[in-house]
């Protein structure tokens, strides 16, 4: 792969994704390397996201690079009305790479068009969060030994959850069978079901969330069902306790099952699941470090052979 911006998951080929995952494996074996000596990485968080920012900044620090940036647009010139373009042009004078999160959709794509240095999208509104998808893929590959032919159960908010949409797009290369488990108001949008049909991705929709619907799962990907997403609050009250994963629901599950969640969780996985060996969400977050080290190095033109 050439050194390039990392903006959206859908534009990456199977080879690109597997290449980045292989890089991430090397970083898991040895996360501390002096690959970014004399490099400055800017983390521009126009919208706060502590978890993602810390993960990116840790990735840079462990590779020997330095970090500049801001974690809240109110502390940048954006609050004075500066355009995104001007901020990017200014920062690109200082940094070798820009990691950015922005509340507007497409902000990272636009930044990548105007910036002389590569851009990594750390989330652009409801649109994309591709480094999350890379760590999800890495977690699936690591726990299952493969990405091919898996049963992946997506549970919760499948309408607004960008992580499930990006995961669905990324998995198109690997012949998955998806199971969509969501309340009616938060069902998988038609746009993504059409995407599945177009890319020959099999899917099954379930209204019920119980031990039988998840018995065939290799991966359960839980997401948060948020009250503010409902127009009908009666419906929210009816379903809010339905889409909660509890330990006793895992009795019929497959031995290789692993449970993922992009975090933060707010009750949709009962804490009695945490001690089950199938709970993987905390390790999943840790994998974000290795996935982001791979994305950063690739953007700066560091190749797999440099890691061996």
């Amino acid at each position: 792969m050439e050194n390039e911006s990392f903006v959206t998951i859908a534009e990456h080929s199977k080879e690109d994704l597997l290449y980045l995952l292989e890089m991430a494996q090397h970083f898991e074996k040895q996360p501390n390397r002096n690959l970014l000596t004399n490099k400055v990485v800017a983390t521009l968080f126009f919208e706060p996201s502590t978890r993602t920012r810390l993960s990116f900044e840790t990735a840079v620090n462990r590779l020997g690079g330095r970090v500049i940036g801001f974690c809240d647009a109110s502390s940048s010139s954006t609050s004075k009305g500066e355009s995104l373009k001007d901020t990017i042009m200014m920062v690109s004078n200082y940094a070798d790479l820009i990691v950015m999160r922005h509340h507007l959709e497409g902000a990272a794509r636009y930044a990548s068009e105007i910036s002389p240095v590569p851009i990594i999208n750390a989330g652009d509104g409801a649109n994309q969060h591709p480094s999350q998808t890379m760590l999800d893929l890495y977690s699936i590959q690591k726990t299952q030994g493969t990405l091919e032919n898996l049963n992946i159960h997506l549970v919760g908010d499948l309408k607004y959850g960008r992580t499930v949409h990006s995961l669905l797009q990324a998995m198109r290369h690997f012949n998955p069978t998806f199971h969509f488990i969501a309340p009616k108001e938060l069902a998988m949008p038609d746009e993504y079901k059409e995407y599945c049909l177009k890319h020959h991705i099999q899917y099954v929709e379930h209204a019920e969330f119980n031990e039988d619907t998840i018995a065939s799962a290799d991966i359960i990907y839980m997401t948060r069902v948020q009250r503010e997403r409902f127009t009908d609050l009666m419906e929210y009250e009816r379903v809010k306790h339905v889409y909660i994963l509890r330990n006793k629901m895992l009795e019929k599950s497959k031995p290789n099952l692993r449970i993922l969640h992009p975090l933060p969780r707010v009750g949709e996985i009962d804490i009695d699941v945490d001690d089950n060996e199938k709970a993987y969400y905390f390790q999943q977050a840790r994998n974000g470090l290795f996935a982001r080290q791979a994305i950063i190095c690739n953007a700066l033109g560091i190749t797999l052979s440099d890691l061996k």
């Binding site: 355009s83 507007l104 959709e105 497409g106 794509r109 509104g125």
Partner: peptide
Amino acid sequence: ANPKCISNNEPM
């Protein structure tokens, strides 16, 4: 048509 699109919020 998306009001949250960057193209509606930047001079671009």
